[in-house]
């Protein structure tokens, strides 16, 4: 999975992958649910990418400490992005 991919889960709900961070060799996805027209809905999700027996799964992050860490990392990514953009302008 990559940033900007649209993933469809087994319940047929689609998510846009907004960002990905790595922590302890695990990939964590920051996603938002989208509608049929690919507009964002109100559901933001933080998934862990799990590959088991060759099948790709997402698992919602439950551990508040992990969540807090990846949110910090995502926040850092975000401000770095906007800073870069600001410099590019």
């Amino acid at each position: 999975m990559n940033i900007d991919d649209i993933i469809t889960l087994e319940d047929n709900v689609e998510y846009m992958v907004l960002d990905i961070v790595e922590l302890n060799q695990e990939k964590y996805l920051y996603c938002i649910e989208i509608d049929s027209e690919e507009r964002p809905k109100q559901e933001y999700k933080y998934f862990k990418e799990v590959i088991e027996d060759g099948v790709l799964y997402t698992e919602e992050v439950e551990d508040p400490n992990i969540l807090e860490t990846i949110i910090s990392m995502l926040t850092m990514n975000h401000i770095n992005d906007v800073k870069n953009e600001e410099q590019d302008v």
């Binding site: 999975m1 900007d4 991919d5 649209i6 993933i7 469809t8 889960l9 087994e10 319940d11 047929n12 846009m16 027209e37 690919e38 799990v50 099948v55 790709l56 799964y57 997402t58 698992e59 919602e60 992050v61 439950e62």
Partner: peptide
């Protein structure tokens, strides 16, 4: 229905509204 339920990824694709995003 609680958080943490594992769900298989059925498909991965690119957005059709790249410009919007």
């Amino acid at each position: 229905e609680k958080l943490g339920k594992r769900k298989a990824v059925k498909a991965i694709r690119k957005t059709k509204k790249k410009e919007w995003w």
